[in-house]
Structure formats: C-alpha cells, structure tokens
Amino acid sequence: MRTFDYVTATDVTTALRTVAERPGAKFLGGGTNLVDLIRENVERPDVVVDVTRLPLTGIDELPGGGVRVGAGVRNSALAAHPLVRTRYPVLSQAVLNGASAQLRNMATVGGNLLQRTRCPYFYDTASPCAKREPGSGCGALGGITRDAAILGVSEHCVATHPSDMAVALAALDAVVEVESIRGTRRVPVLELYRPPGDTPHVETVLERDELITAVELPAADAAPRSRYRKVRDRASYAFALVSVAAALRLDGDTIVDARVALGGVAPLPWRAAEAERLLVGAPATEETFARAAEAELAAATPQHDNAFKVELARRTIVATLRELQEHAAAGSAA
C-alpha cells in the first residue's frame, strides 16, 4: 500500500485549511471505503486529513420538528438514535440494511454520502473506467453488468451509487451543510449528486476542499410511517439489487403525500418524481401503485444482463407502497 501523510484535525477550520492548501489532500472519515480504495490504488491521496475527531457528532432537534445530524456521527449511532427511529424510520432501516455492524460502527454519515461505486471495473485498475481515469472509456459496457444501473446512465458510465442511507435521505428531502475556507452553504441531497454524462469522475457538486459538516432532516408528516425495503442476492451484508425508500400519507383512501426513492438502479439516489406525481391525489390501491411504478421505470435502459432489475424494481416499489398502505389502514382502524 502506497504511503501518504496523515493529519488529524480537532477543529473544523484546521481541517478545511489543510485540505485547501494541499492539492493532493483528502478528508478521511471512518476509512471503510477510502482505505480500501487507497489499498487498491484507485485513490492516491498525498495526505489524508482525519475528520473523525472533529466536534461533528451531535444529533439535535431543530425548531419546527426537524433533526440535525453531525457529519461525523457513526452510521450505527444514527440508526439507533430515538429521534431517527421514531420520526424517520426509513432512515434507521436504510442504515441498518447497509454493510455490516462492524462497518456501521466505523463509517460516518458524511463518508457514507461520498462513498464511491462498487462497480468492479472501477476497482480493477487493468480495465478502462472513465470514473477512475477520465476519458478512458467504460470496461463494464458489454461486460458483466448484472449489478449496473438502469436509470440515468450515460454511454460513459453505468455504475450505481452504493449507499442505502442516501436513498432514504433523498426521499426525506434532506439538506447537506457544507463548509470550506470560503464559507458555509446548504445543498439539498437531491442536488448533491451529478448524473454521469461525459464526466462520470465528477460525482457531486462539491469542490475538493469542501467538507460535509451536517445533514438536516426536515419535518415531514409522512416520514413517521416511512419504510425501506432492500432486495439483494443474500439476506444481509450485500449491496442492493434494488431498494425502495418510501413514505405515504393518506386522507381516507386518497394519497395526499408520497415519497419514493430508489437505490441500486441509478448512478445517484433516484427520487421517483414521476411515480410520486401519479400517486398524489389517486386512491391507494394496487392499480395506482403498479401504474406509478411502471411510469417511473418506462425510461429504464438496462444492459444485456440486467433487464431483471426493471421488473424487480416494479415489484419492490409496489410491495413497499402496499405495506405502507396496509400499515396506514391498520393504524386508522385501531
């Protein structure tokens, strides 16, 4: 494993200044992705700035019912927090469905958002990959793409975003707080990630020296009844083939608010806006759910070996919405 300098920062300003001043510097969170990528020679920082000792580990209630989560909060602490479990169950479930308990004890919220794809061609430095080496092409196309994306892909990249947590955050309209030596700005999670286009190596709107310091979860009436459903090759400890984060709010049998986001199918956490448009105002029935899922997936462009994901996504969306509808019906009958 190639060497690098290691700097540990105990205040945000020092961390920001160090990364800004050294062009080869990267922020280091729990290390569960970056350490592996350095070992595989995919990431080659000259210096890593450890941000896990920064005072960014709070989970606090906001005026108006929202919750602010420090970017240094460990994934396990996020999933276990009473405010998250009661107000945003979809987020707790999404985190608990990701990785393993050991990795969740290490990984931070900020690092989870910025983890890189697990596309095997991205990891294989003998293969072309425009995400790893800009302009080098895509080794996955025509190769093994069973796990690849079916929505929002480009001819330059079909890799998926691997995070479960980010899918729940997309459904919840979470906002990321970002700091650099130039100041602080707020970026909605839905605007954080960039579609691959012809620059798949540019994955977010963040500059190299910007640090995610917090994630804000807005208050939402639908959120306490939200669910996360993940389908994968084995029952646990595997990346998603398809996942769905969803929330429904009903007035009688009519859907008045719907949140649907998809994981495992796109280069970024995929907010299913078309499905939501068809759900809101419609009766909460199997037919409505199926129509919404089909409309969202009409734009799918699977590869030669992953067309199964389209049907799997359709069924998973419908099953998640059905579960939410049944919970709501049971709740109102009680």
Binding site: L28, G30, D50, Q102, M106
Partner: peptide
C-alpha cells in the same frame, strides 16, 4: 470494527 479497514493512526 474491521481491523483491516482501520488505519492504526486513527
């Protein structure tokens, strides 16, 4: 934790 992904310095 997984010791393989933990940098000792951290």
């Amino acid at each position: 934790i997984n010791a393989c992904l933990a940098l000792t310095v951290q």
